[in-house]
Every structure is written in C-alpha cells, then in structure tokens.
Simulated scan of single mutants.
Amino acid sequence: MMAQVWKCAGLRWTTGGGPALVWEGGRTSPLTWGRRVAFAVAEGGVRTCAGARGHPCPLRAAVPGRSTGARCEECARLDRAHSVAADTIADDPRPYHVYLAWFGPGMVKVGITAVERGPARLLEQGAVCFTWLGAGPLMAARRTEELLRAALDVPDRIPYARKRAVRSALPGTAEERSAELAEAHARAVALAGWPESLERQPYRPVDHCAVFGLDGLPAAVGQVSELVPGGVVGGDLVAVAGPDLHLAAVGGGVVVLDTRLMTGWELGAAGDDAGAGRLTVPVRELRGPRVPADVQEGLF
C-alpha cells in the first residue's frame, strides 16, 4: 500500500510560469523538459468527480476512467451552466479578446478569452501559434466570433486527436507556422459588420513551439487510453502541449498522456517499473511505428 497519495486536479498553464500538475489542496508540481514523470494509481482506487466551479462533488460520484471531463452528470450540468465557452453567460462585465489560433496545417480556429487571462487559454488548448483580433465587451466578442466563423469558414473547436497527429511534423520556422494566421487575420479585419464596441488589434503572431518543446519532437507511437487502479506511468518528459504530456518510454517510443485522464484519481510515488520509464496502463497504438514491447496494452 502506498505511504502517501495525492488527488490530481489536472494541469495548469501560467503565463511565464510554464505547465504544472495541480493537486487537491493547491499543491503544484512544475513540469520541465527531461524530467522523469513517474506515478502509480492507488490500488483499489476509484476515480471520483472533480466537482463544478471550484466546489467538490457532494456525492463524490465515481466517473469513467476514459472520461476527459472527469465530472458526474450533475456537476457537468452545473459547470456548463456557468460557462462562457458554452455561451450560457451574457452579463460578464470583463473585457474579452477575440483570437485566431493555429494548431497545424489547415487547422485555424477562432475563439474568445477574458483579457485578464492573457494567453493562458491558448496554452491550455495547445495552440502552436495565435494572434489577437480585437478586444471588447463579452457580447461584442461573441458576435465577432460568430461573424468570423461564418465568413472565414473556421471552427471554434478542433479535436485533440487532430492536434496531436501533426505536432511532430510542423513547419520548421515561426514564419511558416504563422502563414495561415496572417492570411486569416487579413481577411478578418477586412470584413464589414464588426461590432463598434470591439477594438480591432494588429497582427502580432505569438509562437508556442519552443514553449511546448515541439522542436524535433518524435512522432508519438501510442496514447494512454485511461488510468486504472494499480497502474503505473513513467517516462522522460519531452514535450507538453495543452493538456498533453509527451513521455519517452522504454524502447525510445513517445507516448502521449492526456492529463485530463489523471483528474479525480489518487496517485502516489511509483515503483521501479515506472522509474525505468515503463507504462502498465492501457495504451492505444497510434499509426506509424509500433508501440515498444515494454509499453503494455493493459495491466500485467
């Protein structure tokens, strides 16, 4: 039995501070490239709901291991009822940015985020590069977002599977990576119909390739499907993009762990298996090279 366990609350990006795993109670574990990430899931443990809006789940309800939301049905409903992203809040007095973000070739999206948050939302999403388009009241930002979605034919969401698939094959320079952004920004500011209360902003691309550690990133050969009681995860951290840890496991293969799968589990120090860079949790093979033999498809 583990001497001490901590309940994971996910991964947090802070401007200038980099990524860190967050634990229930507020403790954080900063993540740096080359660091060994190693932990074990408590034997006999149950994954419990993360709660809503900063409040614990009153039922401590169990949630499925493969859920990236880590919330029970009721807490998910409460969280969405107070979500700007879900368009359920109209009276937020804070100013909002409208932005364009690029995740890879052919993957440009439009979105909004509170000005006070700076680029944190873009880091959380794994945006390789982005540019602000304008700033103003929430409803003006929302109307502009809808205008651009229709006029530029760009989405407001891109699946993480698509983002992960291209991270190891991105263009080599910041100028190449931001080329689609430059074109989209020029088309956006030329459109008529922008709300008068939204102040347009010039094209100033910000590149996160170095921040995420994507330069020279090997293609991932597998992706953790879920954590399970007694399972161990270990590997050397080679990149962090959005919620994803790219870990070099035994045999040299890189495996992706979506840290949203960690939320709600009690985790503790790992034994020798994880310390050697092994994974004994379910791993889904990705297209390309085979998953190294030391990365197991399931426990034992």
Rank of each mutant, 00 (worst) to 15 (best):
G268V: 08
A9G: 06
E196H: 02
V189M: 10
G172V: 01
P56C: 04
A40D: 05
W265H: 10
A188K: 08
E43Q: 13
C209K: 08
K7F: 02
E196P: 07
A179P: 03
R164F: 09
V256E: 04
V211N: 03
P119K: 12
E73F: 04
G231W: 05
A150S: 09
R162P: 01
G213H: 07
P292M: 01
G106W: 07
T48C: 12
R149L: 09
S29M: 12
G193Y: 07
D244K: 12
L237W: 04
A174E: 13
L267S: 08
W23G: 13
V228E: 14
A127V: 01
T259C: 14
G16Y: 07
G45C: 01
I89T: 13
A161I: 06
L191R: 14
A127F: 10
T14I: 00
C75R: 11
G277H: 03
Y203I: 11
S178N: 00
S168R: 04
A174Q: 08
E176C: 11
R66S: 14
D156W: 11
A86G: 06
T28H: 10
L198K: 05
P105W: 01
C75K: 12
G16L: 09
A101G: 14
L133E: 00
C72N: 09
L100A: 06
D92A: 14
A70C: 10
I89L: 15
G26M: 05
L245H: 07
V232T: 14
C72E: 07
F300N: 11
G234W: 01
P137E: 01
L152N: 07
G106P: 04
L78A: 13
V22G: 12
V211K: 07
K7A: 03
R177W: 00
G235I: 09
A151T: 03
L59A: 15
R278I: 12
W13S: 11
V37N: 00
A20S: 15
D294A: 15
A248I: 00
E226D: 09
R177Q: 08
A135P: 02
E175R: 15
D92I: 12
A241F: 01
V154D: 04
L217E: 04
G264S: 09
L133C: 10
G34P: 02
P105S: 14
C72G: 10
W194M: 06
A50R: 14
I89V: 15
V41E: 10
P171D: 05
G45M: 08
A192I: 02
T68H: 14
R284A: 13
A210I: 00
V283F: 13
G10F: 02
L147G: 08
Q201L: 15
T144A: 15
C129R: 06
G213Q: 07
I158D: 02
W194S: 08
A248E: 12
L11T: 05
E266N: 06
G26T: 02
V128I: 11
E24P: 00
K109T: 06
L261E: 00
V250I: 08
L247Q: 01
V108I: 14
V283K: 11
R35K: 14
P205Q: 12
W33D: 04
V238D: 09
A42K: 13
A182D: 02
L21P: 00
E24V: 03
T131K: 05
R94W: 01
E176G: 00
L257G: 03
H82V: 05
A141I: 07
G275C: 12
L147F: 03
L152Y: 12
A188W: 03
G10V: 04
L138W: 10
G172I: 04
V154C: 03
